[in-house]
């Protein structure tokens, strides 16, 4: 995941075959039933997000309508259609985290990052999301940055945590 998040997404379009790496994967999965979601996952890992051009490329390669591909992409919250930040912050809003103050963390982060839920900071450093229970209820309220879990977060700790990135 770290690798995927850190992957540069801006310089892909210059080469002649912008999605050559993905094409090999698509060939591998071509005849497998239900291959679309797998391919989308890998595509997002490779290129950071699923741009319209990337979705078009996948739809064309799999001979599926673009509307079907984008239907799947927009259905699942894991998929992103816009460039993502270098790091992903996910604040847990599962029941336990919510009652222990998860919402306050969300509000504070919105203010300090200057973006709404689902948004990416102007410097491209953080993408800010919420999660529904990350399975760390004993550590509530919890949040994740990439794959590191921060336990018992309170708003005073936030600056210190963010400064590590």
């Amino acid at each position: 995941m770290n690798n995927a998040q850190g992957h540069c997404t801006c310089c892909q379009s210059d080469s002649a075959e912008p999605f050559a790496e993905l094409d090999q994967i698509i060939d591998l999965y071509r005849d497998k039933e239900g291959n679309l979601i797998q391919i989308l996952h890998i595509a997002q890992e490779l290129y950071g997000y699923l741009s319209l051009e990337l979705q078009q490329h996948i739809a064309f390669a799999l001979n599926k309508p673009l509307s079907e591909v984008s239907g799947v992409v927009t259905f699942y919250s894991f998929f992103s259609t816009t460039p993502r930040g270098e790091h992903t912050i996910r604040v847990c809003l599962g029941t336990a985290c919510y009652v222990r103050g998860g919402k306050k963390i969300v509000d504070a982060l919105q203010k300090s990052l200057g973006v709404d839920i689902g948004g990416t900071t102007a410097d491209g450093k953080f993408t800010f999301e919420v999660a529904r229970c990350i399975g760390a209820c004993g550590l509530a309220p919890a949040m994740m940055i990439d794959d590191v879990v921060y336990k018992q977060v309170n708003i005073n700790k936030l600056d210190a945590i963010l400064s590590r990135y």
Partner: peptide, 9 residues
């Protein structure tokens, strides 16, 4: 042709 389909959830 599949121009339209359900988007979002």
């Amino acid at each position: 042709v599949g121009i339209i389909n359900a988007q979002n959830r």
